[in-house]
Design a protein around this nucleic acid. Structure first.
Lengths: 335, 335
DNA sequence: TTGTATGCGTTATCAT
DNA sequence: ATGATAACGCATACAA
């Protein structure tokens, strides 16, 4: 381990001078600084992040909290895309990413304690379970936080645009002649509530009547439950002409059910997914879906959090809405 | 921030005593220790990981290096499952996970420097690009490392069993009467080489002749290239009766091509995937595939690395092979 | 412009 | 059984 002290000795200057030179302070002679940097590099000097953090009380490390009931958060492509984007943009700004969880080591810490223990400068919370007391404790703590797809009143939030997205989907489907539109939605979350409300509202704006039996409950990322809902919808006396799914992956369950009944997409029934994951783009017929801009969501989260960390005084806590984009495919027939 | 000093003051003992009590040293009086622990808890004391790391030269943090040419590593379900498992088991042993990358902040560090800077106690390397000089530098450094699916001579490796898996796949297909078996493989990596060799060897052991045109090159996780390869195979004069794909996701490309030609699975052509991702289990017909035990791979990687970190002297650097499992589906017809 | 000295919070050594 | 103290590597206030 080569330390500042070693470099100082080699350079015949004081430790403080080396520190300043390496950190680009202006009160060091031009050539002195240059030669110090040069020698430090030659010696393979690397700052010790721990020592620096201890001294400055800043770890340059941001925590990521993914709580998923199924603990499959990472295998959900939407989240892994966000995580990747978050990582890229945080790293660009000099921050590393550490996962936060409870149960670290033999005894358990809650999220706040874990983040505090690691001296995270901030935490990004992507979770379905915002009612979790531990999550609430973290959000209300002095640690800067940013939430995804959920708004706390004292915490910056990055929201995917669930209102507009449903508007666009319904409008698209309606413009192709459909007015018997069914919606299979995911489990009850604030995101789901928004989508449902927007679904009803948009339908109403077009004068579309939505019978109760056209709105089915299923689970996100779960083809089985969407398959069951699909079966129910297909069994209706007055069958819908188009079904909206909770997400692209769940649609697979619907697809299976539809094919099983000898129906074909989109000739006999039209369908729309949600998320725009890779899968939706490689299925044939190509799935009509709504692409959430996960890259942008991750980026906004990183930038907002870092801004909050670095400029706490002037930071304005509000929320930003990230627009997605309808991706027309070949699964909605013009009728 | 409540520190050891604060607790010491409250307890009317010295700072050293508190430290010992909290760390379970035996040279502290039973009741003293108890009351100290009690009070520390009440005061909400949390150790400062940075200070501790500085002093002990151990960060209780392990780095994860995912290099993917497409930088889509995380969106590959196989890897995200491994990552999740790694995380769970590392956390259980008291270690947190931090991503390692180059380009941290404005200037770039290589992987070794990054890991060193963060004082990672060890690094897990999951990468396709093991030729990368920076990866090699890291592996050859003093930092304990564990590689996934690649063997360096001085580094513990966790290997998925690519030899046996191909044996099982070919045996299964052969047992159902196929002897015209085509293999679409991924890009050239050591994993691919093993699978190809095992494919040829197993075929030979059954007396199956494999014409050169039955072995096609495509890319992992890329339905397009597998789709093209499928087209070529289907155009063959002497068409194979079964096609093995690089992975489940790539199979989608083949599926599209097969359907496009009006053929059906498995009546007209049989197919087998690889990986056993969620998707393979929800498609209908259910895809016959080989499930890699990503959970076990992540676990073994975590345990081996931590063992290497905590018992460097007695640690034996070798490799462990994690067996997967053939998951018969409905895509291979008995002929 | 450069150097000295202090302390961040902890662990560990050595006294007592 | 308990306490005083040094040291980990660094940044910084202050002195020179």
């Amino acid at each position: 381990m080569v330390t500042l002290k070693d470099v100082a000795k080699k350079c015949n200057v004081s430790l403080a001078t080396v520190s300043k030179a390496l950190n680009g302070h202006t009160d060091i002679g031009e050539q002195t600084a240059d030669s110090i940097r040069q020698i430090a590099k030659e010696m393979g000097y690397l700052p010790n992040a721990m020592a620096r953090a201890l001294k400055t009380n800043r770890s340059n490390n941001i925590g990521v909290l993914f709580v998923d009931k199924t603990s499959s958060g990472l295998t959900h492509e939407y989240f892994s895309e966000i995580l990747n984007s978050l990582k890229v943009h945080a790293e660009f700004r000099g921050y590393d990413i550490t996962f936060i969880s409870s149960n670290i080591g033999s005894f358990s810490m809650d999220y706040y304690e874990h983040a505090k223990y690691r001296r995270c400068d901030g935490v990004v919370i992507a979770s379905v379970d915002f009612d979790n007391p531990d999550v609430i404790k973290l959000v209300n703590s002095e640690i800067p936080t940013v939430t995804l797809d959920y708004i706390f009143n004292n915490c910056f939030a990055v929201m995917s645009d669930n209102i507009t997205s449903m508007q666009e989907i319904v409008s698209h489907v309606y413009s192709l002649g459909h007015n018997k539109i069914a919606y299979i939605h995911g489990e009850d979350t604030s995101v789901t509530q928004k989508r449902i409300a927007s679904f009803y509202k948009t339908c109403k704006s077009f004068g579309i009547n939505v019978p109760d039996e056209y709105v089915k409950s299923a689970m996100y990322h779960d083809p089985r439950s969407s398959g069951l809902a699909t079966r129910e919808l297909l069994a209706l006396e007055d069958r819908p002409t188009c079904i909206l799914y909770p997400d692209d992956f769940s649609f697979i369950g619907g697809m299976n059910e539809i094919e099983k009944q000898g129906l074909s997409i989109p000739e006999d029934i039209s369908v729309v997914g949600y998320d725009g994951i890779l899968l939706s783009q490689v299925l044939r017929p190509k799935l009509t879906t709504f692409r959430q801009d996960a890259e942008e969501i991750g980026k906004q989260a990183a930038l907002a959090l870092i801004d909050k960390i670095e400029n706490p005084k002037q930071f304005i806590t509000n929320h930003v809405v990230v627009k997605g984009k309808l991706i027309p495919g070949d699964t909605v027939k013009r009728i």
